[in-house]
Structures are given as C-alpha cells and as structure tokens.
C-alpha cells in the first residue's frame, strides 16, 4: 500500500493570515482556488483537433489530473468552451449561441490554428478565427496542438481563474467587450 497522503496532490492554500484555530483570507482567493481546480470543459470539437482532445482525455495524458474529468456537454454547466477545430462560417452562429448559453464566469480557449486564425484554410467558407464571434481568453497554437499543449492551455485558464477579480464580470470594460460582440 502506498501512502495515500503522498499520492494525493493538495492545492496550495492561498495567501492569508493564520493563527490559532483560524485562517483568514479573501473570498476572491478561495473562490478562485475552487474554480481553478474544477473547470468543466465543454469540448466543442469539430474536426482534427478534436481527435487530439480525445487523446488528451485518454489515459496517457489524462486531463482529469487538472480537475476537468467531467466534460460537460451541456453549455449551461460548463466553465470553459474549448473550441477545437475548423469553424466554418455556417458554424459561426452556433458557436456564438453556445457561448451565450454558458453561465458566467466563462472562459474560451481556441485550440489549434483553425480556431485561432482559420489556419491553413484561408478560404471563402472558413471563419478566420473564432475571435470574430466570441471573445477568446487563451489561444493554443499548433495544427493540431499536441495533448501537452492543450493541457498547457488549460493550465493558463486555471491561472486566469485563480487570479480573476470577483467583480471583473460586472465591470464596464467587460460589458463593453461583450457588447462589441453583440452578446447580451
């Protein structure tokens, strides 16, 4: 039997004041910590990059290590929208609708060259990057990115989630950003 306590990785406690029998820190940090370690992804896999996501989910790379073992296929329960693969112009409105259905706080990761910029498909039918329809937080380069890169993208979102101010989503800047995408 291995030592259970050794095998389990504990998240680091946020900064705060501790004394005999108490520990005080700000809500922001605790919530950030909780959010960052259980981000439920919505895998919006359209093409080749989605296959690499399958590998990321599989045993070898194992996305569960980062608290994302539950791919949430319903947008309402998801935290990150992982857009993997080419988004054609026909698909653009669907991405936007899915984004609109997600609850705040929500993050968007554009995985792969296609989602980032249209990739090798500079053609009449392909949307040249999903940032034309929804705001994107993290871009993962590669065609397709290796599973390690996808995991790294996820970890960057964890950083964002950890350090985000609780009021960010109510700020006028954020509202203006959404308004610029015509999202209510």
């Amino acid at each position: 039997m291995s030592d259970l306590n050794k095998d389990i990785n504990m998240a680091e406690a946020p900064e705060g004041h501790s004394g005999a029998g108490f520990f005080a820190t700000s809500f922001e940090k605790v919530i950030g910590l909780a959010r960052a370690n259980s981000l439920w992804p919505l895998p919006f896999a359209t093409s080749c990059c989605g296959i690499e996501f399958m590998a990321t989910m599989g045993a070898t790379y194992d996305i569960s290590r980062f608290g994302s073992e539950r791919p949430s296929f319903s947008p309402r329960q998801a935290d990150i929208l992982l857009v993997m693969g080419t988004i054609a112009k026909k698909m653009g409105p669907v991405v936007k609708q899915v984004y609109e259905q997600m609850a705040e706080p929500r993050w968007v990761v554009a995985v792969g060259a296609c989602a980032t910029s249209g990739g090798i498909f500079d053609s009449y039918s392909v949307l040249q990057g999903i940032d034309r329809v929804v705001p994107v937080d993290v871009y993962v380069p590669g065609c397709p990115p290796r599973p390690e890169q996808i995991l790294d993208g996820l970890m960057r979102v964890q950083d964002l989630a950890k350090n985000e101010s609780l009021r960010r989503r109510n700020s006028p800047e954020y509202q203006a950003l959404l308004a610029s995408y015509n999202i209510k």
Binding site: T46, S47, G85, T86, A88, F121, S123, V126
Partner: peptide, 11 residues
C-alpha cells in the same frame, strides 16, 4: 451538412 466545409477542392 456543411458545418465544417473548408473548400479543399478550391484550395
């Protein structure tokens, strides 16, 4: 269909 039409033949 056509949600990821990428125009291979044109490219």
């Amino acid at each position: 269909i056509g949600y990821i039409h990428r125009a291979f033949e044109k490219i």
